[in-house]
Design a protein around this nucleic acid. Structure first.
Lengths: 291, 291
DNA sequence: GTTCCGCATGAATCGATAG
DNA sequence: ACTATCGATTCATGCGGAA
């Protein structure tokens, strides 16, 4: 799989939009995004470089400059997103001088000024967060996953992310006697065992806006601890098969891999060639595994 | 126990500050707080009425007016708090017109303007959140516990809230009889947790900034949605025995009860007499149980 | 005396209906 | 158009009666 450079294709007819499917593009997303036509993306999932991090790539955006830096990118994201699409922004403010910095709060307010709707804030609870001890704070075990939309009506496929119900129903189901279970099987619809049917029917429930995911513990060569299950969850929730998922800060390709593994098309932008390389390898392995 | 009305005691000498110990005061905290001397409170834990709620009491603060309403109160709280004290604000923004309203974000920014330091944001994960299903969002299962301080150096007693090897162990110990029999899928290791003895003697770990607590259930005489363990946790973390804990929106007295049960002094302000009555009863029962 | 099941009930939110 | 109210939806929990 050869490295694909960004093409200038603003004037392709809509029927050729599939040219934007399953491509990884190397470059600064501020320069690459303008090439993508309007209203082509179903879902954006991204974890942009945090303030003061990744100094070597995006010049180490200072917390005070973060909003100013991100706004033009967000404008482009809004342009390329379909009207019923969703933008998921995984971000967490860092501690500066003993305080939580406010650039994420200010970013939310600024994005609303830009026309985005701040629909929801999911909490990603990191079960095995980074260890450490400080005299005035505990380990930071959560990050924000901010949901923005272009309009109030957007695509959401809630059934695709249902989860088993809580302990209560579980423990009651577990304790049903064997005779009850057999009786239920042998007399379907007879009135016996109706109880059990109720419980079985309620085995799944809709999740909440709190996601419990461990950070990736694999031995990948990159430092981004973006677990595969995180983009997967949002991709299942906000897209269908064949839809197009964009990550403008792709890193080692987690979002692209998640989309690909779920039968969605991906579009990844990443500045560093070595990350592009890594992502292509992951996708290649994934495809081989399927074939 | 007779209902104690707020006294005018601004000019009591410091040696008589104990007069502010263990009192419940009925009234609007906007009017009661000015009576409390400067720098007397070690910890403030409160959950003010959320926007548009409690219409009958605080006039139903509209989301757009929330910051303006709260700022004068926060100024008083800052005045009565000791320099090395902490202010914990439990709050959550509601959905307005399909969007998360931004008044909590704006409140954080405004409090910083007022001189508060926004030290940390704890997440209270509500295991049993309010049910419901909507086409565009899931159940809301978390609330913010915002930590504000007057200065960078503040009292924090981290050892008092240590838990057995991670948060998940805490919940496991809580309903051991239930979880005991279920297979745990934590990556910590298979076969663990079948017996309490596996936990006894294991090293304690510091918690994270994510708290897993269920809301207090309904049948407990009143709708104290604030679980007792929530103020307890912060009281243990930020105070020592004999310190003074203030809740300017006391409700049914959860914070006062938590402080009292932990050997701290309490100071509660509540507008509704029936809540004062309830709180006094709870505290009385608690005292009898101890004696 | 245990365990088990039925039931009410929440810091909610949406959409429709009514003024 | 803008606000106020109401019904429908949904699930973890504790309590009390039943097995």
């Amino acid at each position: 799989m050869a490295l694909q450079l960004p093409l200038r294709l603003n004037n392709v007819p809509p029927t050729e939009l599939s040219i934007w499917h399953d491509r990884l593009m190397q470059g600064d997303c501020r320069h690459v995004l303008p090439d993508i036509p309007d209203n082509t993306i179903d879902l954006i999932v991204t974890s942009p470089p945090y303030a003061d991090n990744r100094k070597q790539t995006y010049g180490g955006i200072k917390p005070d400059d973060y909003v100013e830096w991100f706004l033009p990118i967000a404008a482009e994201l809004r342009r390329v997103l379909k009207p019923d699409g969703t933008f998921i922004l995984n971000i967490k403010e860092k501690v500066v001088d003993g305080e939580r910095h406010t650039y994420v709060l200010e970013l939310i307010l600024a994005l609303r000024q830009q026309g985005w709707l701040w629909t929801e804030e999911f909490i990603w609870h990191k079960k095995n967060c980074y260890p450490g001890k400080w005299p005035n704070r505990f380990r930071d075990a959560w990050e924000r996953c901010l949901q923005f939309n272009k309009q109030k009506k957007f695509n959401m496929y809630q059934d695709s992310v249902m989860v088993p119900t809580g302990d209560w129903a579980k423990s009651r189901l577990r304790n049903l006697s064997e005779t009850d279970k057999r009786r239920d099987e042998s007399r379907v619809g007879s009135g016996f065992g109706k109880n059990i049917s109720n419980w079985v029917g309620r085995a799944l429930a809709y999740p909440t806006n709190v996601l419990h995911l461990a950070t990736e513990s694999s031995n990948r060569s990159h430092s981004a601890t973006f677990p595969l299950d995180l983009p997967k969850w949002f991709i299942k929730l906000f897209t269908q098969e064949g839809d197009l998922v964009l990550d403008p800060f792709m890193g080692a390709g987690t979002t692209a891999l998640a989309a690909h593994s779920l039968g969605r098309h991906y579009l990844g932008i990443e500045l560093l060639p070595e990350y592009i390389e890594l992502a292509e390898q992951s996708l290649l392995i994934s495809s081989k595994g399927q074939g």
